[in-house]
Design a protein around this nucleic acid. Sequence first.
DNA 1: CTAAGACCTGACGTTGACGTGAGAGGCAAG
DNA 2: CTTGCCTCTCACGTCAACGTCAGGTCTTAG
Lengths: 122, 122
Amino acid sequence: MRIGELATRAGVSVRALRYYEEQGLLVSERSSGGQRHYPESAVERVWLIRQLYAAGLASRSIVDLMPCVENGQVTPELLGRLSAERSRIEDRIGELVKARDKLDSVITLAAKAAHEGKPCPR
Amino acid sequence: MRIGELATRAGVSVRALRYYEEQGLLVSERSSGGQRHYPESAVERVWLIRQLYAAGLASRSIVDLMPCVENGQVTPELLGRLSAERSRIEDRIGELVKARDKLDSVITLAAKAAHEGKPCPR
DNA sequence: CTAAGACCTGACGTTGACGTGAGAGGCAAG
DNA sequence: CTTGCCTCTCACGTCAACGTCAGGTCTTAG
């Protein structure tokens, strides 16, 4: 498939796909005219990329650990990177949970105050 | 206290504090010479700001919902914003958990492969 | 009083993940 | 062949949350 179809099917912009390729996250065959062509599997690949981005990984990190996820190369150094990233994500989740709970308490208090027609307490 | 002390006590940079003020997130009294002075409560205030930032809120959003958290003004529209932000955070947590689990499976497989001296499986 | 720090206001730099044209070429239908 | 849509490669623009530098001022210890 060509880049436009991949973009819609993966739910990202065409520009993003070209960017991923530029970063070495995605490869493509080229037609004689220079147009990119992708296999079906590219859709899932893009999904994975997006998921890792969503996890807060930088494209450099993703590039580095892609060999493992895709090709099957694994070094101890890579393993270290992986678990480092894992704990970074874990920390981030913790922060978000705290922030969510904070927001929850604010919402609860605010809703109560609104219901009683009073200003929201501190 | 002055800005340097607040910065160290709140664990942020002086530049960040000035930026927060620029964004309307933080207020300060000024001395006759123009220097910023803060009350004790500013430390906690900065903490709250950081927590909301950590939750992925933009400074604009924080500005908007600060009146409720601080002053006690609450409107139904604000309540809507709050719960919208809450669900955004919830979604984000979900994404991160998925990414973490994905990474977990990769790590497990990779570690096993490394232990067996084989390439990591797909 | 004076020197050393801390602080002030601009104002430009940075980083990441794209957005947004500009100008040109590829490709299937009619 | 041509129309129309998709795609190509530069290459500059954007946005947020600050970093950093310059040039000048304030405060306080000695």
